[in-house]
């Protein structure tokens, strides 16, 4: 049900784009209005979400410490996994964001009769890293449509990505990687009962949508060739706010663009916001220095306590009997 409805939703989007742009020739809507709209929703939504998180304060210093603390000078602290300085935190965050450090710790627990075995499990980490890095490279590669002249860095990246020199047009490795990685991420959701059990439509949908984006892009590049010059002119027009259509572009392009637009518009309201959230996670981005420097809670308020005087009042006789020193004499 959750899987089918997600698949159906993606197919519906493809169908809408195909009918709208390919049959009804609503290229202005699908080529100009929708991308702009999606971008606005994405930017505004992303910002709103981050602001909303930012508005909730961090009352306590709660890093999850994953290594030895800094204490006595002769005990070697783990400066990254249990940071006490801003630099330590920055390193920790860099490792989390670029290498998915925490996910790398992943293990799998197995039960054999009366014993547990905890073994290594790195596939999720690998698949996930492969997907995200491919995605990043692909996004950067796409900038060639939006820049004139194309910066050398982007050209270099393109060159490296296609260095296998297979086929015409040259095959990008990341195109293969992203489809493989996304398929893996999708299949593990369906095939591993435990993961299937926790999955929501909101988990299948983005994977299928991303797969849709990737596959439509690949079809467009390698199979149903479209007028790349026309695409580049439309793209340049969009970024200079003077969008024009100089040539007829095939419907596969509109399918790709529509799916991308939907991804952008969907992003801020979904779990994809982990991309912003990871930077703000208090268990990762704080230094474990709360015994060295006082962490201030902006909403700290006075509370009612049971004072020593009240305590002594209650136990005075008993305290006196056993010779404990007293404040007041009763």
């Amino acid at each position: 049900m959750k899987i089918w409805s997600s698949l159906l939703a993606v197919i519906a989007l493809v169908f809408i784009a195909w009918v709208g742009a390919g049959v009804l020739h609503l290229s202005t809507f699908f080529g100009i209005v929708l991308p702009y709209l999606a971008l606005i929703i994405f930017l505004a939504g992303f910002l709103l979400r981050v602001i909303k998180w930012g508005k909730s304060p961090v009352p306590f210093c709660i890093p999850t410490t994953c290594g030895q603390q800094e204490s006595l000078p002769w005990i070697k602290p783990n400066k990254i996994e249990n940071p006490t300085t801003t630099w330590g935190v920055i390193w920790r965050m860099i490792l989390e964001i670029t290498l998915f450090r925490s996910l790398f710790r992943n293990t799998a627990t197995e039960k054999h009769d009366g014993n547990l075995a905890i073994g290594s499990a790195k596939w999720l980490w690998f698949g996930s890293l492969l997907f995200h890095w491919s995605m990043l490279v692909i996004i950067i590669r796409h900038l060639r449509f939006f820049t004139e002249p194309v910066p050398v860095l982007i050209q270099g990246l393109e060159f490296m990505d296609s260095f296998l020199q297979i086929g015409i047009p040259l095959l990008y490795m990341t195109d293969v990687f992203i489809v493989l990685a996304l398929s893996y991420l999708f299949l593990r959701r369906v095939a591993i009962p435990k993961v299937k059990y926790i999955s929501q439509a909101a988990d299948y949908f983005p994977l299928l949508l991303l797969l849709g984006v990737a596959i439509s892009g690949i079809l467009m590049r390698y199979f149903f060739r479209v007028d790349v010059v026309g695409v580049k002119e439309l793209a340049m027009g969009l970024v200079t706010f003077r969008p024009v259509f100089s040539a007829e572009i095939g419907p596969i392009f509109y399918i790709h663009l529509t799916l991308v637009s939907c991804l952008f518009a969907y992003f801020p309201w979904s779990k994809l916001m982990h991309a912003g959230g990871i930077f703000m996670s208090p268990t990762r981005n704080l230094a474990n220095n709360s015994r060295m420097v006082r962490h201030v809670n902006p909403w700290n308020y006075a509370v009612k306590t049971h004072t020593y005087d009240e305590y002594e009042e209650e136990f005075r006789d008993k305290m006196k009997k056993v010779g404990l020193p007293l404040e007041g004499e009763g």
């Binding site: 909730s56 627990t109 926790i198 988990d203 959230g277 996670s281 208090p282 268990t283």
Partner: peptide, 28 residues
């Protein structure tokens, strides 16, 4: 949710990857 960023964030960003699933001793 307004007082604790941790709470709001942790309500929002879980991707249900399942990496934590078999890490809890109660599940194990």
């Amino acid at each position: 949710l307004d007082k604790y960023r941790s709470f709001r964030l942790f309500m929002d960003v879980c991707v249900r990857c399942g990496a934590c699933a078999d890490k809890c001793h109660f599940y194990m």
